[in-house]
Computed example of a mutant assay.
Amino acid sequence: MDKAELEKLHADLLIAWNKQDATKMASFFTDNGISIGFDGSQYNGKKEIKAEIEKIFEHHQTADYIWKVKEVRFLNSEIAILRAIVGMRPPGQEEINPAANAIQTITAIKQNNVWRIELFQNTPAQFHGKPEKVEELTKELSAVSEK
Rank of each mutant, 00 (worst) to 15 (best):
Thr62Cys: 10
Ala26Ser: 15
Asn32Lys: 13
Glu5Cys: 05
Ser27Ile: 10
Trp17Ile: 06
Leu13Cys: 09
Val144Ser: 01
Glu136His: 11
Leu82Met: 10
Met88His: 04
Ile53Cys: 02
Gln42Arg: 15
Glu52Thr: 10
Ser27His: 06
Leu6Trp: 01
Ala80Cys: 11
Glu140Asp: 09
His10Gly: 08
Lys8Asn: 09
Ile79Cys: 05
Asn32Phe: 08
Ala84Met: 06
Pro98Asp: 11
Ala84Leu: 06
His10Arg: 07
Ile106Glu: 10
Ala26Tyr: 09
Trp67His: 11
Ile66Val: 15
His59Cys: 01
Lys139Cys: 01
Val72Ala: 05
Lys139Ser: 12
Phe29Glu: 04
Glu95Val: 13
Ala4Cys: 01
Ile103Asn: 07
Val72Asp: 04
Phe120Tyr: 15
Gly45Phe: 10
Ala16Pro: 09
His10Phe: 15
Asn76Met: 07
Met1Cys: 05
Ala84Asn: 04
Lys70Ser: 11
Val144Met: 01
Asp39Glu: 07
Gly45Arg: 03
Ser41Val: 10
Glu95Cys: 02
Ile81Val: 15
Thr30Ser: 13
Thr62Tyr: 02
Gly129Glu: 03
Thr23Val: 14
Glu71Lys: 15
Leu6Cys: 09
Lys130Pro: 00
Leu13Asn: 10
Thr105Met: 14
Asn112Asp: 15
Arg73Ala: 12
Ile81His: 07
Ile53His: 12
Gln93Lys: 15
Leu141Phe: 02
Ser77Met: 07
Glu118Asp: 13
Asn113Gly: 02
Arg83Ser: 13
Asp21Met: 10
Met25Leu: 14
Gln93Cys: 07
Thr138Tyr: 00
Ile56Leu: 13
Ala80Pro: 00
Phe74Lys: 05
Lys147Glu: 01
Gln111Thr: 14
Asp2Pro: 04
Ile117Ala: 12
Asp2Asn: 14
Glu7Asp: 03
Gly129Lys: 04
Ser142Trp: 04
Met1Tyr: 05
Phe120Gly: 03
Ser35Gln: 06
Leu119Asn: 15
Met1His: 11
His128Pro: 05
Gly37Ser: 13
Trp17Gln: 02
Gln93Ile: 06
Trp115Met: 03
Leu119His: 14
Gly37Glu: 13
Ser77Tyr: 10
Phe120Thr: 03
Pro131Phe: 00
Met1Ser: 14
His60Asp: 04
Leu13His: 11
Ile103Glu: 09
Gly92Ala: 04
Ala99Phe: 12
Glu94Arg: 07
Asn76Cys: 11
Gln93Thr: 14
Leu141Asp: 00
Leu14Thr: 08
Thr30Ala: 11
Asn76Leu: 09
Leu75Gln: 08
Gln111Asn: 10
Pro124Met: 11
Met88Lys: 15
Lys147Gly: 01
Arg83Val: 15
Gln126Asn: 12
Ser35Ala: 14
Ile85Tyr: 09
Thr123Arg: 03
Leu141Gly: 00
Thr107Met: 14
Asn101Ile: 13
Arg73Asp: 06
